[in-house]
Design a binder for these strands. Sequence first.
DNA 1: ACTGTTTATGCAACTAGTTGCACAAGGTGA
DNA 2: TCACCTTGTGCAACTAGTTGCATAAACAGT
Lengths: 186, 186
Amino acid sequence: MSLPHAILTALLEKPSSGLELTRRFDRSFGYFWSATHQQIYRELGRLETDGLIRALPAEQPTRGQKKSYEVLPAGRAELARWTAASQDPKPHRDALLLRLRAAAVVGTAGLEADLRRHLELHERQLAEYQEIEKRDFPPGRDGTEDRLRHLVLQAGIDLETFWTQWLRRALADVAELPDGEATRPA
Amino acid sequence: MSLPHAILTALLEKPSSGLELTRRFDRSFGYFWSATHQQIYRELGRLETDGLIRALPAEQPTRGQKKSYEVLPAGRAELARWTAASQDPKPHRDALLLRLRAAAVVGTAGLEADLRRHLELHERQLAEYQEIEKRDFPPGRDGTEDRLRHLVLQAGIDLETFWTQWLRRALADVAELPDGEATRPA
DNA sequence: ACTGTTTATGCAACTAGTTGCACAAGGTGA
DNA sequence: TCACCTTGTGCAACTAGTTGCATAAACAGT
């Protein structure tokens, strides 16, 4: 139940259209919350119906026209309520770790290439976050908002750093394994 | 589409009943895949129907009786197929990071207590994983399966370590903030 | 003008995961 | 022996997220 709150947060930071939100969720927002454009449009509709946001119609709100939204007081109140409430951590699922555990019983075929692919993805992501840090958080500025947002970005950077290191280690380990079809034959 | 494969992996490591699986998914398996007992029973039914696993009926398979399952060759083949295929990383969502970002616009009320609660949870989890490591992976043993499983556990340990560190830093940062109802007044 | 591509919005169907509850068997204490 | 608790299995309804496709306007080339 957090997508609406993610959208409210994004809109409070800057009123946007559906597509702009999609871009932001793909980009910087993505390191803590991701969403497809279909999800976003659907949720924007709900939030508008519920009176938490409203459209800023420039001209006619037909198809093919940009439609920007802003947060209404009720929306801000709802976000504040949600933010103040304590939440239980959601269970995590990691397909890559599961795969490695599965590989321990059915063999490591094909694993190495994919570990390498993941490593590349995480390296690219890390580089991107470091770019953002350099651009958006130069040393010296430390308003409350900046501090908190920097903290969030820092988590993203540290996580990507962790994964690149772990993957390198995993690759090194997998490389010196016998790598049969199955380690414990059927 | 990974729950069936998680169950196949777990059953290959050791044939189990629904409840035993539930316990394992709550415990060590939980650091890379979690599932409720309802999910597990449902999936066991499907896997049996599909001929990937079969029940080992001790007596009568009535209600209130333990019913253990083992993986059939078709199940092992399916798991091997899945493990060898490359998969795209799933998008991640982290409610805590989202909350922090939301707190940057609607205020940090209630945040500190919850960060502290999360810190405790992660510390406890970390301690538990370290226990498991000490018990299940004493230095010296390094068969292929052990190596891979240790690698997975290591990821769990390192992730929990990361979170405890990050949360301590976040707490320190939040502590010296003005902490008004909203940092940027409505 | 016409064809194709990009931008922008959106619906519908499906899959995966969660929540709430039900039911049976076996043990425990009063 | 009856009431209650724990263990073990399971269904049904709901919520969240994914996938596939449709539609329309704007623009670019030919």
